[in-house]
Amino acid sequence: MKTILKVVILLFCVTAFSQEQKVEYKKINENLVKATYYFADNTEAVEREGFFDADGKLNGIWISYDTMGNKTSIANYVSGKKDGVWTYFKKDKINVVTYNENKIIKVEEKDLVVN
């Protein structure tokens, strides 16, 4: 019985992760490519978007979204390293993390006030 359960779980995991994610790439200039990733189960909803430099490293602003199109985070990279201010949006809070070359410099939590 345990073997059958393990096989069923394994098949479920393989099926769940086998969906291909749609990705679009657009060359901005010689040094920058914009990438847009879509949710695997919905090719119209953007999951995250941002830029790669000429070396294929994350560079510039990357924005992540939930399935409803709301921003969940805004991140910044410089040559593949976390750098600058990152903002994480929660239901009623905003977390702001400041990085310098992948190292956390400062962490703040702010209440989200909607007028």
Rank of each mutant, 00 (worst) to 15 (best):
V33N: 05
L11V: 09
L5H: 05
K90W: 09
E20L: 07
A16K: 07
Q21V: 04
Y65L: 13
N31K: 09
I28A: 12
D41I: 12
K90I: 11
V46R: 00
V96P: 07
N70S: 13
E109W: 01
F12I: 06
S18M: 12
A16S: 08
K22D: 13
T43Y: 10
Y38C: 10
V113K: 08
N115D: 11
N70T: 06
E109I: 09
V107M: 14
T87C: 08
V14F: 01
F52E: 08
Q21N: 03
K81A: 14
Y99D: 10
G69Y: 00
C13T: 08
V85A: 02
N29E: 11
T15F: 11
F52V: 06
K91I: 03
K81L: 15
V78G: 02
L32S: 15
V85S: 08
T98E: 15
L5S: 10
K6A: 15
I105M: 12
N42P: 04
Q19W: 04
K103V: 13
K91W: 02
N70K: 15
D66H: 05
T36V: 13
K27F: 01
V107K: 15
V46E: 04
K2H: 04
G69P: 05
E101D: 14
V85H: 03
K90G: 15
Y37G: 03
S73C: 14
Q21R: 11
S73H: 13
G80V: 07
W62M: 02
D53N: 11
E101F: 03
K82V: 00
K27M: 14
I105N: 05
A75F: 02
I63A: 09
V78N: 10
E44T: 01
I63F: 02
D55A: 13
I74T: 15
L58K: 00
T36A: 06
E49V: 00
N76C: 10
T36N: 12
K22Q: 14
L112C: 12
D53T: 00
N70P: 04
E47W: 03
V97A: 06
Y38T: 03
V114Q: 06
G56W: 10
T36E: 07
F39I: 01
V7F: 07
T43A: 08
V23M: 07
D66Y: 04
T15S: 03
Q19K: 14
E108S: 14
E101A: 10
V33K: 05
N42A: 03
K6P: 00
V7M: 13
N95Y: 05
K103P: 02
A45E: 15
G50K: 00
S18H: 01
I9F: 10
K71Q: 12
A16L: 12
K34S: 04
L58A: 05
D41W: 09
K106W: 03
E30I: 03
F52W: 04
A45I: 14
I104D: 12
C13W: 02
V97L: 08
E49T: 10
K71H: 08
E108I: 03
T43I: 15
S64T: 09
D92G: 02
G69E: 14
F17T: 06
I104C: 12
F17P: 00
K6Q: 13
K2Q: 13
A40F: 02
W86S: 04
V96N: 12
N95H: 13
W86T: 01
N76R: 13
G50W: 00
L112T: 11
